[in-house]
Design a protein around this nucleic acid. Sequence first.
DNA 1: TATTTTCTTGCAAAGCCTTCCAAAATCTTC
DNA 2: GAAGATTTTGGAAGGCTTTGCAAGAAAATA
Lengths: 252, 252
Amino acid sequence: MSAEQRQQRIAAYLHKAEFASLEELARHVGASVSTVRRDLTTLAATGSLRRTHGGARLIPAPSEEFAFSSRNTHQLEEKDAIGRACAELIQPGQSIILDAGTTIYHVARHLEERVPQIITNSLPVANLFGATNRLEVIVSGGVIYPRLGVLVGPLAVEAFTKIHADVAILSGGGLTLGGVSNSHGLLIDIQRAMIKAAHRVIFCFDNTKFGRQSVLPLCGLDCIDTVVTDAKAPRELVAQLRKKNIEVIVAR
Amino acid sequence: MSAEQRQQRIAAYLHKAEFASLEELARHVGASVSTVRRDLTTLAATGSLRRTHGGARLIPAPSEEFAFSSRNTHQLEEKDAIGRACAELIQPGQSIILDAGTTIYHVARHLEERVPQIITNSLPVANLFGATNRLEVIVSGGVIYPRLGVLVGPLAVEAFTKIHADVAILSGGGLTLGGVSNSHGLLIDIQRAMIKAAHRVIFCFDNTKFGRQSVLPLCGLDCIDTVVTDAKAPRELVAQLRKKNIEVIVAR
DNA sequence: TATTTTCTTGCAAAGCCTTCCAAAATCTTC
DNA sequence: GAAGATTTTGGAAGGCTTTGCAAGAAAATA
């Protein structure tokens, strides 16, 4: 049997079985485990299935959710740790502005029972809290920025210029000693309004954002009160931030 | 069995059981309690369930968060028929204001490929379109009214007073010859703003709303251009509406 | 506070993955 | 058709991940 033929049979088998172990597949196509392993690597590279430990899995049907929501995101452990650490900074009873983005989504998940009121332009965050009535969620208006479920545009900016909150929790595309940068002008307008609206500004960055510079500048370091990051953040940059009087929390 | 497979089975089990203890899960997937514990931690980090002491609890899936979404609703056949009929009234290219509520959600589902732009205060509707970028969705701001996922309050009213659209599609709690009524003042404020903002006003009522009167009056019959209903609507009332120069579409 | 249950942490065993190598199969070239 | 080069295959060694267990810490219960 040719290689292609074998890979096709593997794909077909998985299509019925959802999961399959290496041995299972090896038996099914009559080849060694090593060969199946190689086949799976190629198949995974072309995107027709996903490798797992000990086997392979069918690609999950394209869900209609937003690009992240929860699973399916890089640096998951780190972001979850950042989320927890950031939530612990919040005093009970404070009102919070929450930015959009995957990192902040993880903050939101740890925030539920601490605060009475949050203000956000992120649909995933709104959905997270919308069904419960434990806390009040104010959603800024705006146009949905498709894949991410962020509300952008003048309506969104306006909403934040009218509001005041104790804390704003944001993230960005990159952090250097020159300040914070982000990828899209639409987002930046809103984030600037958020910063102005809040008494205390907390930025969350996973380690991959350190030292990186994104397309457009958002604000200087002087706008930031606190940075929350994970244990893999470069020590030197952390030290330099502290020297500039920024509180840096390293989540672990 | 691979780790992912096991985690999926845990998630599936919880989907039926709401709660489950560690031992229960361990027995069900044939792994040790330690392993299940670790699995639960990962699953909780992705947000698919919530850890509790001694077990885990289900988190409602995003599509089912709000009280209705699509299934789990009375008069499903009728509402779907109304939704399709109402969507057919829309000319390609028109901009649409969509009210919240289960009936209108069904309209939205049939609207996707007809219009370039919709404006809504319903989170379920926003979620429905938010992940695609086929059409522009403008979300009014506001406070989330918990169970239904409607955005209410001054921010929402204001958003609709600034906007203009070709068509507004609304529903209400009751329809009599005296006009339309609804259950909540917060909703009524917004609906009035929607009516003012649109050139043409379409109301969708399933048959149970005919002849009923809800708590608060919303508007008179003179505000309505078109009513869409289902085949079980009382003929007499339909006839009387037509006599008053209202276009009545009966979906079947 | 005392007691039980559950959680965390560390560790050793088992299983899986990567890497490398030699044999087999296939393709080139003459 | 034959010799050599190339690719594919199956297997083995070593490293990494996962798993189950046990002991101490923390939390819930009474």
